[in-house]
Design a protein around this nucleic acid. Structure first.
Lengths: 196, 196
DNA sequence: GTCTATAGGCAGATAGAC
DNA sequence: GTCTATCTGCCTATAGAC
């Protein structure tokens, strides 16, 4: 029934809303952007926004869901394409560096700062993002230790915690100054500590 | 003339405003608190707030100024009381752990997330905070290397960058979950990488 | 110094026409 | 799906009395 070709009605608008809102949140934070900002950028009205996303909270949820899914895809691609653990970590760092190079903060990093002001569903999604990232990192690190390309004392989970903390913190601080290389510098030191 | 004893008129009120506002910003962020929040907590009116701090931007500046001064005092105390570099770093970590234990984020860390929405004077103050912290850390690390208690490859500046990034990031992420020990865990790994 | 009163703007959100 | 029109509430800020 219904459609031979896809019903591409509002799908594009909904996606474009996410694109604009995502950028705004990554630059200004959840409490630093408004429906009016998104509407102005897309040249539609705020009433139209409410058609696609009933409220700011739902838009925020959709933002994290898509971001986390893309992140998971990127990690799956790394697992698929890169065999060696240390190189996987380099690729992981590249994801962060790309975000920063576009003048943005990690979506979930900036939302972590605003955590106490977020509606519960958004909080839970942010927490899940960090949990799954740390789990992926820990498995890569454990794998590297087994194969002998990484060596160090702490547990893989602790090392993963250090890596993700260092990357998020370096992004955070890098945006307050002119030197975006701060992230790369931090990443080099962090990864070096795993290969001694 | 005028006073034998100190004219402690509004001084206490101005300080109490800073105390309340500081807590609010460290928990909810600069864009997540209002004059009304502070006024309610102190049981005064927002009009009174404007007498002490003409606008939110000036209040924000005063907040960073006091916070940075306290931080500088704490670092000076460490330099005065603790001779050994590695122990100085432990004391530095304790400062962060104390903030987190009170359910707060580093004031300048949370402001870094909101950087793009801040008035220029606040931005500059945040940037200065990180610059001076990193300079202090780098000097301690360099000192530890000279005296032989620390040993590692990267420059002292790069190691300082890694430490402050890791601590800020760990605070940020720790607040999204139940495990506040995440900061301590990250700190252990970070400092361990400087003593190999 | 602190208050009442109020201005003026922007926020998120809804009803209903097209 | 997108619009106009509108609501209600909160925000920062000011004037002026006490």
């Amino acid at each position: 029934m219904s459609g031979a070709t896809k019903p591409r009605r509002s799908v594009n608008t909904a996606e474009r809303i996410l694109d604009a809102a995502e950028r705004l949140v990554q630059v200004r934070g959840y409490n630093g952007f408004s429906y009016a900002d998104v509407a102005a950028e897309l040249q539609i009205t705020t009433a139209s926004l409410h058609y696609h996303y009933p409220g700011k909270a739902e838009l925020g949820e959709a933002l994290i869901t898509r971001y986390a899914a893309r992140f998971a895809d990127a990690l799956a691609a790394i697992d698929r394409d890169i065999p060696e653990a240390r190189s996987k970590l380099d690729a992981y760092v590249d994801i962060y560096a790309d975000v920063l190079a576009r003048g943005r903060m990690c979506l979930c990093g900036i939302l972590a700062a605003e955590y106490e002001t977020l509606p519960t569903p958004m909080r839970e999604a942010v927490t899940r993002f960090f949990d799954s990232n740390q789990a992926w990192l820990a498995s890569v690190i454990a794998e590297g230790r087994t194969s002998g390309t990484l060596s160090f004392e702490p547990s893989a989970a602790d090392a993963a915690n250090m890596i993700i903390s260092g990357l998020e913190g370096a992004m955070l601080i890098a945006r307050t100054g002119p030197d975006l290389e701060r992230l790369r510098t931090a990443a080099r030191c962090l990864l070096a500590s795993l290969t001694r």
